[in-house]
C-alpha cells in the first residue's frame, strides 16, 4: 500500500511566484523511512503541506493510503498523515501537556476514555510519560517537539512527516527527536518522511530524495546519493562531512568508505596505514 502518492502534481503559490512544482511524481510505501533533502526554498516544505491537504494542488492527484486528498476526504487524509512543523513554540494549542496532546483526538470526536488511552500511548511513544501534567512553556525545545509529535500520534496516523522539525533545536534536542523517530519506525512500524537539511540525519533513512526548484532531482539510498558529490553541489547542498573526508582520502590514494559510518571508516583507515 502506498502511504503517500503524488501523481503528476502541479502547484504554485500564485501567478507571480517564481516557485513552481510541475508534474511531480512521488510515492512513499507503507513502512518506509524516506528522507527529503534540499536547500531552503527547494520545495521540501510544500511537499509536506500538499501531502496532508493543507495546500491543494493546481493539477494532478495527491492521495494517502488510497484516499484522494480532496473535498470531504481531507479530514480522513489529515487523520492518516500527521505533520510536525519546525517551530516548537508555534504548534501547541494548550498550556498543559495532556491538554495539547488531546487536541487532535478531540477534533476528530474520539470518545473521552479513548482519548485518555491515546494520550498515554502517545506520551509513552515519545518518552514523555512523566510530563503529562507539566506546563509546556517550561519544557526544553526538544521536549516541546516531542509533545508536538505526541499530539500527532494521538490521531493514530499511518505516516508522520517531520518538516524540518529539528532545525531550531540544539544538538541534544536533535538527538532526542532522532531517537524518537527511530523508535517509532522500529516499534510502531510507522511510515516516516523526514524533511531536513542536516545531511547526517538522512543517513538513517531507507531512501533519500533530493529536491531542487520544486523537482525531485535525485533518489536512492543515502549512500548512493552521497556518493554523487558533484550533483549534490549543483543542487546547492554540501556533502556530509564524513563523506567529504572519505572522498578526499580516496583522492589521496587510500581506498576507504562508502559506508558513512565513523567506526567503519576508522577501521578502514587503520587497515590502509598499517
Amino acid at each position: 500500500m502506498q502511504a503517500i502518492a503524488f501523481e503528476s502534481v502541479d502547484f504554485s503559490y500564485g501567478e507571480d511566484s517564481a516557485f513552481r512544482i510541475k508534474n511531480l511524481n512521488f510515492t512513499v510505501e507503507e513502512g518506509e523511512f524516506v528522507a527529503v533533502l534540499g536547500h531552503n526554498g527547494s520545495g521540501k516544505s510544500t511537499l509536506a503541506r500538499l501531502a496532508n491537504g493543507i495546500l491543494t494542488p493546481d493539477g494532478g492527484k495527491v492521495s494517502a493510503f488510497g484516499i484522494p486528498a480532496e473535498g470531504k476526504n481531507l479530514y480522513e487524509v489529515r487523520k492518516k498523515v500527521g505533520v510536525v512543523f519546525q517551530n516548537p513554540d508555534n504548534q501547541t494549542v494548550a498550556s498543559i501537556v495532556e491538554d495539547d496532546v488531546a487536541f487532535g483526538a478531540e477534533n476528530v470526536g474520539t470518545p473521552r476514555e479513548e482519548i485518555g488511552k491515546r494520550i498515554e500511548f502517545a506520551l509513552k511513544a515519545v518518552g514523555m510519560e512523566e510530563y503529562r501534567h507539566a506546563t509546556i512553556a517550561r519544557l526544553s525545545g526538544g521536549q516541546k517537539q516531542r509533545i508536538a509529535i505526541a499530539g500527532v500520534l494521538a490521531l493514530k496516523p499511518g505516516v508522520i512527516i517531520l518538516d524540518e522539525s529539528t532545525a531550531m533545536l540544539d544538538p541534544r534536542g536533535r538527538r532526542e527527536i532522532m531517537e524518537v523517530v527511530k523508535r517509532l519506525k522500529e516499534e510502531e512500524g510507522l511510515t516516516v518522511v523526514l524533511i531536513t537539511h542536516f545531511m547526517e540525519e538522512a543517513l538513517m533513512a531507507d531512501r533519500a530524495v533530493v529536491m531542487n526548484r520544486g523537482e525531485i532531482v535525485m533518489q536512492g539510498t543515502p549512500q548512493e546519493i552521497f556518493s554523487r558529490s558533484e550533483d549534490l553541489i549543483t543542487y546547492n547542498l554540501v556533502l556530509p562531512r564524513i563523506r567529504y573526508i572519505e572522498q578526499r582520502l580516496n583522492e589521496g590514494g587510500m581506498s576507504v568508505g562508502g559506508t558513512l559510518d565513523t567506526q567503519i571508516l576508522a577501521e578502514e583507515i587503520a587497515r590502509c596505514v598499517s
Binding site: 477534533n107 473521552r112 494520550i119
Partner: peptide, 21 residues
C-alpha cells in the same frame, strides 16, 4: 503557523468535537 498546525491536526471548529477534560 499555529493555524497550519491546527489544520494539520484536523481542527474543524466545535462540530463533532469531544472534550477530554
Amino acid at each position: 503557523e499555529l493555524g497550519e498546525a491546527m489544520d494539520a491536526r484536523c481542527y474543524m471548529g466545535s462540530k463533532n468535537r469531544t472534550k477530554y477534560k
